[in-house]
Amino acid sequence: MEYLNIFIKSAFIDNMVFTFFFGMCSYLAVSKTVKTAVGLGSAVIFVLVVTTPINYLLETLVLQEGALSWLGDEYATMDLSFLSFIMFIAVIASIVQLVEMLVEKFSPALYGALGIFLPLIAVNCAILGAALFMQQKQFANIGQATVYGLGSGFGWFIAIVLIAAIREKIKYSHIPGPMRGVGMAFLLTGLMGLAFLGFLGFEL
């Protein structure tokens, strides 16, 4: 139950795009067609599911105050949390690199589909954002952290696919010149954000 709660909460209520604006840069840049949106969305889910648990382990076993106590009592008071930004981003960047190489070697077809998006992801704020929120929410175990990663990724996936679908159709509408493209995308995201606010009414 707890897992389902975390999933629904992170995917819909705390949606990365609509409530926190995380990953907006690639969200706006790569949402012109549904096909590419699905590609980038899947890549984000994948990277989040892999990096969030790794960052969780890093946080609980190394970075947190007292986390190093498994090394011996003299380390029990160490607090490395000031290093968390740099460690998280290093993990994310290297996992992305690793995933890119693995996918390229073992599944050229998937690489063809995801390949160009993977480098973009290292600097997608949704990934680092999920790591930092994970740190703040202090999940009880690694399972919850993984589900949180999955949920956040899924929420991001829905967001980008939805907006891409709208943008595909909107090409045929008469939009005032200055609002064409980015302007309209902002407005649409705002409206969708309002709709997603409705999920706040969920009691979990």
């Binding site: 139950m1 707890e2 709660n5 202090q138 009880a140 979990l204």
Partner: peptide
């Protein structure tokens, strides 16, 4: 706050 998220919250939702 730590006790709430680590210990109390799981009990409440379970």
């Amino acid at each position: 706050r730590k006790e709430y998220s680590r210990a109390v919250k799981p009990i409440l939702s379970a």
